[in-house]
Design a protein around this nucleic acid. Structure first.
Lengths: 474, 474
DNA sequence: GGGTATTTGTCCGTATGTATG
DNA sequence: TCATACATACGGACAAATACC
């Protein structure tokens, strides 16, 4: 008789333990095909459990095909020609974990796109996920709208109209899994009629990379404090341009209305396309929020791209874009048969989040929270650096840019010195197409609280401004 | 059996809805005095609610004297006096349901990739999501591993090794949001060294489309009953080939071992790459499961692609691929800075699902469930079509292919006639690069239950085999 | 070899613990 | 705190299959 042990310490239920042990014995052919299992009563008595417990385990094995029941006779092991080959167990695993853990333990992390660690509404999200799962769960057994759920698109449309001045219909909205997904769709959409993209320099590295992989030629166009250099843009003869007009990345410049209108003129004359990335427009800490470029010319030609990554969660992978009406037929032609990039569950949960008003509430909460952090960082920089540094891109988003005055160190050296003080920084140079000409440093303030920000800046001042080296670099 | 409907939108608790409906039926004597009510278990299972819910309703009716319980026997309707006959109003409940059913035109849906509507484990998923959200929710405020969470990749690695004969390390695994995502990554990975892709004809339309957008030349290679025509493959001079060797789409051919080895030889000689799509390999209903091609040559050159869409949910958007070691450096170079395509929450939940053994259990349950449907469909086809049709691709997956013998109708005509009978079909022609030469029809059996399948096939026979038209088409 | 006692699968109602809101 | 709902445990009742006399 086989021995089963059920009373080992484990929080799993009895019937599951029994199920697992039986399955194991069947798979290893200790219970060979055709073998008769002990009767429900016998085994229940032997193990001192209820008959139903055994019954449940048997029933599960039955529905899964391991055993079959002959009524009023007994349970027997099926002859399964199945995958039961017991292969040699997997190779050593712990090594990979070590590699990950080997990373430096920083005390201060100025990541430019990290959010406040405690800010994700996990309990609320759990509740809303439960709601999403309990309604019409059969939806999860079929393919869904490749453009994204209509309910969610309606919510986003309303939000964009009320808060961002974006004018569109829900049919123009496409749910994406992040900027790279949006850009890939856009590149495929445009590649029939366009072949070159202009991007900001400095600017986000991603758009150029994505479009290059779709065989676009990518031109870097310098950015001035009022935004993209339009003369340069014209010289490149690009017909598509990617811009961040409301909060230029990484320097935070805002493109004034005159320039916006000129850009739209350029678009009209060249038949070009503007990709407007409004990535952190929600976060402005003083002054009026800048309405989206798209609202100035909703007739077409502008593709608006937005995300939930900066205010809600970057790990949830939900973003959206607004396509001009003229592009919709081609979009449907190319992507009608595709599947959406974002899980239906996530979409439904986000819909509930927005529909019940939590999104706008969360947005307000985050804005005041980040404003506190933002102000604390500015004050700390002012205090520790004074006239030795100037600040760019303040008043919005999740990071500022520090420009060191008369700095003797290169960017790598600055970062190395900060790391020695267990401070993590992120290079601006990667946003340049041709190196970081000046000593610019990005300081993200999302992750740390005001006290940490203050201490972090103190560490940086110590790392960089040690008077001896600073005043007399050799 | 009386029918109770509990899931109409109403905030009242389930047991109260049930109580009201039961009382209604007793008062109207649809349940006459002395009638035995369905057992607690039976009714609970039928309504898909907890036994306690039914129990509460019964208990309430008991204390109010509508029914009485004979212990260890069942519940019975009491013989009521006359006084309670006053029941004028009946709530207008079913109207909403009607509207929903009204917009659904088709009575029978043979979608080839739809799953069993009730099969998604929504309650379990809710529990596991709750677990995922309560542990380390600060992870949701930062960007995560673009390759996918290591824990999840470990689970997938173990599963692939034990069940599919795929031999790899977790570092080779990449979590993707579906086939198109996997293919896009692969195309970018290969575009530096390769320029042409061979696909099966007939076969899935997606791979060719995706690779074309990455500037690949796509060659269609005919498929024979033992798989891809290797001579044709060689003539195309392609260096990358996409195949479904375990269950060729859509015809279900299995590539025998000899041909697999020849294909590997081809790969070695040409330095080519094989993309093996194992999309529904989990679902085999008789005969030996076919181990993955990758296991025959784990040294490299084969990219293995798998998905959770066919067994768990197509709406959840999670799939995975296994890259050869040699491609990993290039992969990291291209994608290290990207964000993952799949939400962290979904990844964590799926990890818990696999880690706690639910995945393998679910898989077995689904296998037996779909086997029942598969067998029912085959039997129905045999019964209604007999020698007028032959069946391809049986014994696996979620669909079969029907080949009509001496059929006078074209594929569009067949589909139109089926639609007249409110039966929804999906064309095979889209899988051909040059039209559907014969009267092939895909019949997906995932969505319907055995009874529906039987009726659906009867409708098809009626639509197509009406003897007058069949024997003498004008 | 046919009736009978026993075994066995399969149903039943019930009680308690726990998660959630 | 309380109601709701589900998961997990329990032992009793019955009819069909089986073993035994």
């Amino acid at each position: 008789m086989n021995l089963f042990i059920l009373d080992y310490p484990d929080r799993r239920p009895l019937h599951m333990k029994l199920y697992n042990q039986l399955k194991e014995q069947i798979l290893t052919e200790k219970l060979p095909p055709g073998a008769k299992l002990p009767s429900v009563r016998q085994l229940a008595a032997e193990l001192a459990v209820s008959r139903n417990t055994v019954d449940y385990a048997y029933a599960q094995l039955c529905t899964e095909g391991f055993i079959y029941s002959k009524s009023r006779s007994g349970y027997y092991v099926s002859s399964l020609e199945q995958e039961c080959k017991v292969r040699p167990s997997s190779p050593p695993v712990g090594l990979i974990r070590e590699r990950i853990n080997a990373q430096k333990n920083f005390e201060f992390d100025f990541h430019p796109a990290s959010l406040s660690p405690e800010s994700f509404p996990d309990k609320l999200w759990r509740k809303l996920t439960a709601e999403s799962l309990s309604e019409k769960s059969e939806q999860f057994t079929a393919y869904c709208d490749p453009q994204g759920e209509l309910d969610l698109r309606l919510q986003i449309q309303g939000y964009l109209e009320r808060f961002r001045g974006v004018s569109c219909s829900p049919e123009q909205i496409v749910i994406c899994s992040g900027l790279q997904d949006s850009l890939a769709v856009i590149a495929q959409l445009l590649q029939a009629e366009h072949a070159s993209l202009a991007v900001e320099n400095p600017g986000h590295w991603l758009p150029g990379t994505v479009f290059q992989r779709y065989a676009f030629t990518v031109h870097s166009v310098p950015v001035q404090p009022d935004g993209l250099d339009l003369d340069c843009l014209q010289q490149t003869a690009s017909t598509v341009v990617y811009i961040t007009p409301s909060h230029q990345f990484p320097f935070g410049y805002v493109m004034p209305v005159e320039k916006r209108l000129k850009l739209i003129q350029w678009m009209e004359h060249t038949g070009g396309v503007i990709i407007e990335d409004d990535y952190d427009s929600e976060l402005r800490y003083h002054g009026k929020p800048i309405p989206a470029l798209q609202g100035l010319y909703p007739e077409g030609g502008i593709i608006y791209v937005g995300t939930f990554a900066k205010v809600l969660s970057p790990a949830l992978r939900v973003s959206y874009m607004v396509l001009p009406d003229a592009l919709l037929p081609h979009y449907h032609q190319l992507f009608r048969q595709y599947a959406p990039a974002v899980s239906l569950l996530e979409q439904k949960t986000l819909y509930h989040f927005m529909m019940q008003g939590y999104w706008e509430r969360h947005l307000r909460t985050m804005r005041t929270r980040y404003k506190r952090k933002h102000d604390a960082l500015l004050q700390a920089v002012q205090h520790y650096f004074g006239s030795r540094a100037s600040i760019l891109g303040q008043g919005a988003g999740l990071h500022i840019v520090l420009k060191l005055i008369d700095c003797p160190f290169s960017e790598p050296e600055l970062i190395r010195r900060a790391e020695d003080q267990l401070v993590r920084l992120f290079p601006v140079s990667e946003t340049y197409s041709g190196g970081n000409p000046e000593a610019h440093i990005m300081l993200g303030f999302g992750r740390m609280n005001p006290e940490q920000l203050e201490k972090g800046v103190a560490r940086l001042a110590h790392a960089w401004l040690d008077d001896k080296e600073y005043c007399s670099p050799e």
